[in-house]
């Protein structure tokens, strides 16, 4: 066991890198997988992007300048790899982002590893209506448990813009969930 700074030293030391990288995988594999999964939606896609992400992390370790935390740096790589995947997918399949957003739910329900009930599907429906940036920021804060300043570092956006996007998304989600609950209670 060691502190983050000691751990980074081990990662940067070529002799200790192999062992430290295995520990890095143990610590971050799930975190990055779930971060990626919420962007690319299906398990199959998330698996591909996760592999590319860790490969990129390994190759870039020598260039890690410690200007941000290890956590933020890896999320930034994972985010970029996910966007790269979406962008290439868009090139092959879609004409616009609107198509991708519309495709969100169709992709989700065809994923064999989506096992959501009616309420979970409704939450996805609400998430799909959000602008992509707001959705990503909401998910990074709410599910990935990143701080606002960490999200700002990952996306390279002003922290106030991040807060604005998050609260706007949270407000929309809350309003929609209340409407769904009201609908379920009254049947109207």
């Amino acid at each position: 066991m060691t502190s983050e700074s000691d751990f980074i030293k081990r990662l940067l030391d070529q002799k200790q890198r192999e062992k430290a990288f295995k520990t890095l995988l143990d610590l971050y594999q799930k975190r990055l997988y779930w971060h990626i999964r919420k962007i690319v939606i299906t398990h199959e896609n998330a698996d591909d992007v996760l592999q590319n992400t860790f490969l990129r992390i390994y190759k870039s370790l020598a260039n890690f300048k410690q200007e941000s935390s290890l956590n933020t740096w890896m999320y930034r790589i994972a985010f970029h790899e996910s966007i790269r995947f979406l962008a290439l997918n868009k090139k092959k399949t879609f004409d616009s982002l609107h198509d991708i957003n519309n495709h969100y739910l169709n992709t989700l329900v065809t994923d064999p590893f989506f096992d959501g009930d009616e309420i979970q599907l409704k939450l996805h429906n609400i998430l799909a209506t959000l602008p992509e940036k707001d959705r990503q920021i909401f998910q990074m804060k709410y599910y990935d448990d990143l701080q606002f300043n960490e999200i700002a570092d990952v996306l390279n956006i002003n922290v106030n813009t991040i807060k604005t996007s998050y609260y706007r998304a949270a407000k929309i989600i809350k309003k929609n969930i209340q409407e769904v609950e009201l609908f379920n209670e009254t049947g109207v």
């Binding site: 295995k22 995988l25 143990d26 594999q29 799930k30 997988y33 779930w34 999964r37 919420k38 398990h43 698996d47 996760l50 592999q51 590893f113 989506f114 096992d115 959501g116 009930d117 979970q120 599907l121 939450l123 996805h124 599910y143």
Partner: peptide, 14 residues
């Protein structure tokens, strides 16, 4: 979110 992963996915993926 109703999202799942295959059994032993993370050890295989590692």
């Amino acid at each position: 979110l109703g999202l799942d992963v295959p059994q032993d996915y993370f050890s295989t993926s590692k």
